[in-house]
């Protein structure tokens, strides 16, 4: 259900109708921007926004900080695992040495 794909808004095509051109890996499509604009973020400010596109509508502005945060959590998982593995290895080494 609900195929959605990230794309970047590259051009506003119709300010009144809130339409803009979104680029997904070099493929462009006109989409409706109504769901991602408000008084603080008017249509004119949308160029450059990364959005989630579903059936020709930009449905959500992608939060770059949250995306980075999610990836960081996973990276830290790896770091913790590596540390644990290193500690285990050195403990073994110490065990052998003694």
């Amino acid at each position: 259900m609900c195929l959605g794909i990230p794309g970047q808004i590259v051009e506003i095509t119709d300010k009144t109708r809130k339409l803009g051109l979104v680029d997904v890996s070099g493929v462009k499509r006109e989409v409706n921007l109504a769901c991602i604009v408000n008084e603080e973020h008017p249509v004119a400010d949308c160029v450059g926004d990364w959005v989630l596109v579903h059936v020709g509508f930009a449905m959500s502005r992608i939060d770059e900080a949250e995306a980075a945060e999610t990836l960081k959590i996973l990276e830290q998982l790896g770091e913790v695992q590596d540390e644990l593995a290193a500690m285990r290895a050195s403990a073994e080494a110490l065990g052998k040495a003694s």
């Binding site: 195929l3 794909i5 997904v24 890996s25 070099g26 493929v27 499509r29 596109v53």
Partner: peptide, 12 residues
């Protein structure tokens, strides 16, 4: 190629 990937992602 990237464009074909994008094309396929959009249209499923």
């Amino acid at each position: 190629r990237d464009e074909v990937k994008g094309f396929c992602e959009i249209l499923g």
